[in-house]
Amino acid sequence: MRRKIAIHNNFHLILFALPALLLIITMSELPFLLNFFYSFTKWSGLAKTPVYIGLQNYFVTLKDPNFLNSLLFTFKYTICVVILTNVLAMALAIILDKPLRLKNLFRTVFFMPNIIGLIIIGFIWRYIFTRGFDAFYNLTQLLIFSWSWLGDHKLAWISLVLVAVWQSVGYMMVIYIAGLQTIPQDVLESAALEGVTGLRMFFSIILPLIMPSVTICFFLTMANNLKVFDLVYALTGGGPGTSTTSISVNIYRESFQASRYGYGTAQAVLFFLIILALTLIQLRIFKQREVEL
């Protein structure tokens, strides 16, 4: 009898989820599975019949310097953005969790970049880096403003990191503030009574207690930045040369600009496996460090 009720209740729930589920399956999961099929073919994306060529796309990919370079760039970029974003967000969260007079204003200001689309942010910053910096240089004569921030092979990726951090730091800050507010006051007070202060307080008391937030923030920043496309596309276009071509941009170039659709999907599949492995490892490591009171 009880079981019957359970099924009956679940049936309702499934019914409610069905429209969303159908959409996700047809719009996201089905194309994803088709991807695997196309990765075994030589297909221009246009010809009416793709040609089956087995694993050849994968072998070519593993020897393709453009793919390997974009992989390297993506890792370099992701590591920098993840570390910088989280350290900064944590610092801001701790400062803005204190009873400051303008803290709500600051929180809003830091969160603001997050509500603008990345592609628009890319165009805004492209303007700042070119015309804006020209104007600053004329005003201040500081050499730093005369550098070619988007056109220099050594600087372009740093510009990307700066903008990415600027954009995502607010969102992570909010998660950290929420984490900080879950720490019971009595724990902090008793630690203070025992004479714990400053850095020791942070590393021994606060950090372990907000570990769940750290896990979420690292997971989000890592997954988002490994997949980075829109920001690169709008800000540097992957250039100069291929110096800021992320894997997503490389896949886009191969499939849609070079019409090697089968080859592009093979890269996408490999890339999916890499992201999957990395995020699983990251989650496992961080989960182990979470403590409960």
């Binding site: 092979h153 040369g241 110096s243």
Partner: peptide, 20 residues
């Protein structure tokens, strides 16, 4: 060949930027 111009553009950008 199709899309070779993309490689050409990237490589010559590298040359102009002193990366190759």
């Amino acid at each position: 060949p199709a899309s070779w111009e993309t490689h050409l553009g990237n490589l010559l950008q590298d040359y102009c930027g002193g990366a190759r």
